[in-house]
């Protein structure tokens, strides 16, 4: 009996420790990736079923709640701007000179035809707030040691019930992520690579998104330039700046 009790206690303790670990890992990852603010330029290559397109943009981000993106090319998208404040999203289209709020089922549309939806971009809650996580194993991805984390939703209003993340054990950078439906069906896969050290942070500069329910070769997202902790004027995060 004593033995059994001991085993149970040990087991419980182990579980506690590992879940604690997992949360810690996630927090470290978050603090590593997100910064107070950042400015970056990126290239998005969308490999559609029929053709590929390249879109470049420049983004200003403060914390999790505010972001502003301006598209630079191709000509068709140039000048299109996107503003996200809290859980609201506006798009400005220069050809129509209109600011349109994206809400409801429009959020489920893909961003510029990529494998990402607006909704995917919008969920800015901390992973540790909406998922409970645990370390389920170890793996090696392209020579880097990783923990495998399994995240299960704690709340009901999330798109993906479970996620699996592969976190670099040394740099606290996610290298791969898989998103699952409630049933366990894999829906999306994200692969992160070309991890670079920028201003003392490890940062993946290439992210490949693949919506497994969609035809085509996935979307490649490359950060071509990134600066952390810059001074971003407040007026950028206003609707007025969309029209400028």
């Amino acid at each position: 009996m004593k033995r059994i009790l001991l085993i149970i206690t040990t087991l419980l303790f182990t579980v506690f420790v590992s879940s604690q670990n997992a949360d810690d890992i996630l927090k470290k990852v978050e603090s590593n990736i997100s910064s107070d603010n950042r400015i970056f330029e990126s290239t998005m290559i969308i490999n559609g079923a029929r053709s590929s397109r390249t879109i470049t943009s420049k983004s200003y981000v403060v914390g999790d709640k505010q972001s502003f993106t301006e598209y630079l090319s191709p000509a068709r998208e140039k000048g299109t701007k996107m503003l996200k404040l809290e859980n609201q999203l506006w798009i400005y289209s220069p050809s129509t000179d209109r600011i349109i709020q994206i809400a409801g089922h429009m959020l489920r549309q893909s961003v510029m035809g990529s494998d990402l939806s607006y909704e995917d971009m919008m969920d800015d809650r901390k992973l540790t707030d909406i998922y409970s996580s645990k370390v389920t194993g170890n793996d090696n991805i392209e020579g880097r040691e990783t923990w495998i984390l399994e995240l299960t939703a704690k709340v009901t209003d999330v798109a993906y019930q479970t996620r699996k993340m592969w976190i670099d054990t040394e740099r606290y950078v996610p290298l791969r992520e898989e998103l699952f439906a409630k049933s366990g069906q894999m829906l999306k896969r994200t692969t992160m690579s070309e991890v670079e050290n920028i201003n003392g942070r490890w940062f993946p500069t290439k992210i490949v998104y693949k919506d497994l329910m969609k035809q085509g070769g996935g979307t490649e997202f490359k950060i071509t330039q990134v600066q952390f902790n810059q001074k971003i004027p407040d007026h950028i995060f206003t609707k007025a700046s969309l029209k400028q």
Partner: peptide, 16 residues
């Protein structure tokens, strides 16, 4: 009026 739709590539489209 503004039409909001999606382009052939799936990007959001706006047109007055």
């Amino acid at each position: 009026v503004t039409l909001i739709s999606s382009t052939m590539d799936g990007s959001m489209a706006f047109y007055n």
